[in-house]
Amino acid sequence: MTVIAVPFHLDEHLPDLELPLPPGRSIAPALPPGATWERMATLYEEVAEAVAADVTAGRVPLVISGDCTTSLGVVAGLQRAGLRPALVWFDAHGDVQTPETSTSGYLGGMPVRQLVGGADRTVAHRLGLADVPEQDVLLVDARDLDPPEEVFLAGSAIRRARVDDIAGIAVGGPVYLHIDVDVIDPRDLPGLLFPTPDGPRLPAVAAAVGHVLAGCEVAAIGLACTWKPGSGADRVLAGLAGELSAAI
């Protein structure tokens, strides 16, 4: 496994982002001026290149970043290496917003929708990202959905599961395993940017992730460290991150 750090939240460089594992490589280019998605496309081009190189060399990249949009670069890199990955997406949120449905305008709430062919297409077009078929997406938890997300998912082929039910669900083909740490109940993880109560506890999430690692052909892992600086969450998650590293 290769640990790749992308110390950004969207297009904001976070040089002091506390990570649960030491990286073997850090991707932190100077981004050009311009619109946010255009700047992120530049960043994710480097992510895609790094992921494609690792996968082609027979390595499984673990990409650690400050939000979920880095997944666009990871999936593009897997596709460049000749894979057509399914997604297993752990998150307290649906991440299926669009610029038209999002009341906050937060770009980090859109990557799943982008990966299946919707929302802003700037990064997808720049990276040559092919749409992931909706039926190849498994959204795990997603307990905090806005009404437009509920409507979209109700008419979508995206599958949904609770953390406790993941062991009984089959996912075929190579898998991109994505874990937004806010899937964990905030009682177990301090300092989350978007804490969502009544979630699965850390041991349950770790067990579910273990089932995916044991039962699927995991081609890449994304870990979205959506926490505040100085929260200590990196130390809390060091054990889970170590298990991810050791399992591949």
Rank of each mutant, 00 (worst) to 15 (best):
P15L: 01
I184K: 04
A208Y: 02
I158L: 13
K228Y: 09
M1H: 11
P197I: 00
V205C: 08
L237I: 11
I184G: 10
V181W: 07
G117Q: 07
L189P: 05
L202F: 00
P195E: 09
G66Q: 01
L31P: 04
R121Y: 03
G199V: 07
A86T: 11
W227R: 05
L189A: 09
H178N: 12
S231V: 06
G242F: 00
G58M: 01
A224N: 02
E134V: 04
V212C: 11
H9E: 12
D91P: 07
A247N: 11
H13W: 12
F194C: 08
L213A: 13
G77I: 04
V218G: 09
I184D: 06
M1W: 05
I64P: 13
V88N: 09
V137C: 06
R113V: 01
G128T: 03
A238M: 08
A247Q: 05
A157M: 04
H178P: 12
Q79S: 09
D146F: 00
P229A: 12
I169G: 08
R25C: 11
S231Q: 07
D144C: 01
D234A: 15
M110V: 02
A224C: 13
V209D: 13
L43G: 06
P197S: 00
A28G: 09
R143T: 11
Y106G: 02
T42R: 14
R126H: 15
V88D: 06
V47N: 07
D198M: 02
C225T: 10
P22S: 10
A41C: 03
G58D: 06
V123Q: 08
S65R: 03
I179L: 15
A35Q: 14
G173Q: 05
M1Q: 07
A76E: 04
V55Q: 11
A41M: 01
A92V: 01
Y106N: 14
A35L: 13
A52P: 06
P200F: 12
G34N: 11
D136C: 12
P23Y: 10
L14M: 14
R121P: 15
E46V: 02
D188E: 04
C68W: 03
A86E: 03
R187T: 04
L177K: 09
P229N: 02
K228G: 00
R121I: 07
P133M: 12
A207C: 01
D182W: 01
P33I: 05
S231W: 09
A30V: 15
A157I: 00
V63K: 00
A214I: 08
I4P: 06
G155E: 10
L83R: 13
G94D: 07
R84H: 13
S65V: 11
G77C: 05
W37E: 15
P85G: 05
E134M: 08
P33R: 13
R84Q: 11
T70I: 09
G118M: 10
A81L: 08
P148G: 04
S245A: 14
D165A: 15
L127I: 03
Q135D: 15
L10R: 10
R59Y: 00
V209L: 08
